[in-house]
């Protein structure tokens, strides 16, 4: 039995996951998925910024399009920190595809003209 606090939304439900991966204490379907993943393969969405050229702004906010394995957070950060983007850029643009073969892309979170 593992006790967790759900991080899917700000509500923060108190979850219990038993040895057969049955989740209780969740108040939505997403909490159940989180509970199962957290004890088998915990993942996190990473958000950060990258260097932005050709704009009055110097940083562009970015995120991983999908959560990546928790154990790879710092490796993914190292890849994010290599990215340089030149304006114009649109929110949702893919800046780096399939980062470290995680299946997740690094995407822009803001449109800059």
């Amino acid at each position: 039995m593992t006790k967790l606090i759900c991080i899917v939304c700000p509500k923060g439900c108190h979850l219990e996951v038993d040895d057969n991966l049955n989740v209780t204490g969740n108040s939505c379907k997403r909490g159940e998925v989180y509970g199962k993943n957290e004890v088998t393969n915990p993942t996190r969405t990473i958000t950060s910024t990258v260097i932005l050229k050709n704009s009055c702004y110097t940083r562009l906010p970015v995120k991983t399009s999908l959560p990546v394995p928790k154990s790879m957070i710092f490796d993914v950060m190292a890849e994010i920190n290599k990215i340089e983007v030149s304006a114009p850029v649109s929110c949702g643009d893919i800046l780096l595809k399939n980062v470290l073969s995680t299946g997740s892309d690094i995407v822009a979170c803001k449109s800059i003209k």
Partner: peptide, 12 residues
């Protein structure tokens, strides 16, 4: 702070 932030910002 919110519970989720204790988990994903500190405990992680």
């Amino acid at each position: 702070g919110l519970n989720r932030n204790i988990v994903q910002c500190l405990n992680d």
